[in-house]
């Protein structure tokens, strides 16, 4: 018997991406730069989060022509984003045969209440989370990979750190809980009980968990890895910097050698200007992406 689209096949690709960097790209040329630098996958987009934030308006799935161009230009996996809840955009991406779908808060949500039923798809999904409850709910909806939300397009790592630390703390509580406390934790976190039980079985989140949302430097990437992330997404941080190829390569190296400070010191040298960052407190509440 041959089975496609099983959870093992879906989460299996995420396992293969571990320890790697997934880069946002908007053109075939950028995709080639990312692949050459050692990216494990690219995220095909029409605009990077920093530009979506600056330009405002409704942000949607990219034009299929653009996605296909990027798919044809590289041999590494290609991911693409759909709006939260927009299952038809997801159907289109599956028809294009993208390798992973990101149901992303970077785009304008399409459903005020629900996320996509990801079990209905053979293509795997990655979803953002700010805490363990969100992560577990997305897993229960069929997500095969999780990432922190952070605050996309800011070049400011503080929100990704906040989300990762909170998730770590909540996972520790689940692991240390007495059996009779687990149901209460499920209620407290808004996390389906069966996912909490899977965490207790495995000793960790049952799906791969990457860092995303504000990573701009090799040190940011290494910090997220030391906090326990399985890998890193870099959105605006590469192609909004002054020397994308060099920075991309440096972030790839830093994600692999995240424990080696002497090496990180070499990796971090002479990278040109990082993207201009934003102070989170200066962003009006309605422009925050992570609360979507």
């Amino acid at each position: 018997m041959v089975e496609t689209g099983t959870l093992r096949v879906k989460s299996g690709l995420a396992e293969m991406l571990k320890g790697g960097v997934i880069m946002d790209v908007t053109t075939a040329e950028q995709a080639r730069i990312a692949e050459e630098a050692g990216a494990v996958a690219v995220m095909a987009l029409e605009r990077v989060p920093a530009d979506i934030r600056a330009q405002g308006g409704v942000a949607r799935m990219a034009d299929p022509t653009k996605i296909s161009e990027i798919m044809e230009s590289v041999t590494i996996p290609v991911m693409a984003k759909v709006r939260i809840g927009h299952f038809v955009e997801a159907q289109i991406l599956q028809a294009l045969e993208v390798d992973y779908i990101d149901e992303s808060e970077v785009l304008t949500p399409a459903d005020p209440t629900y996320h996509i039923n990801k079990w209905a798809f053979a293509v795997p999904f990655v979803c953002g989370a700010r805490n363990l409850g969100e992560a577990c709910r997305r897993i229960a909806e069929g997500a095969a990979m999780i990432r922190t939300k952070g605050e996309p397009g800011t070049g400011n790592v503080i929100e990704a750190v906040r989300h990762m630390r909170l998730m770590n703390e909540q996972i520790r509580r689940v692991l240390n809980a007495e059996e009779e406390e687990v149901v209460s934790l499920s209620k407290e976190f808004g996390a389906p009980l069966y996912v909490l039980r899977a965490i207790r079985d495995k000793g960790r989140l049952p799906m791969v968990n990457f860092a995303a949302g504000g990573i701009a430097t090799p040190a940011d990437a290494a910090m997220m890895m030391q906090l326990g992330c399985d890998g890193v997404f870099v959105g605006s941080g590469i192609f909004k910097s002054t020397d994308p190829a060099k920075r991309a390569q440096a972030i790839v190296q830093a994600t692999t050698h995240f424990m080696d400070a002497a090496r990180l010191a070499v990796i971090s040298r002479d990278l040109g200007e990082a993207m201009e960052g934003m102070i989170i407190e200066e962003i009006p509440p309605h422009e925050m992406m992570q609360t979507r």
Binding site: M1, V2, E3, T4, G5, T6, R8, V9, G12, L13, M16, T75, P77, Q94, E97, V98, D99, Y100, A122, V123, P124
Partner: peptide, 29 residues
């Protein structure tokens, strides 16, 4: 990437010489 893009990734069982007729195998891209 001979098995195609991710949507064509699959799992099955294989006969492996020296091991047996029923070895689980997960093929990913």
């Amino acid at each position: 990437n001979a098995s195609g893009r991710q949507v064509h990734s699959f799992e099955t069982t294989l006969a492996v010489k020296g091991i047996g007729p029923d070895v689980p195998a997960v093929f990913i891209r």
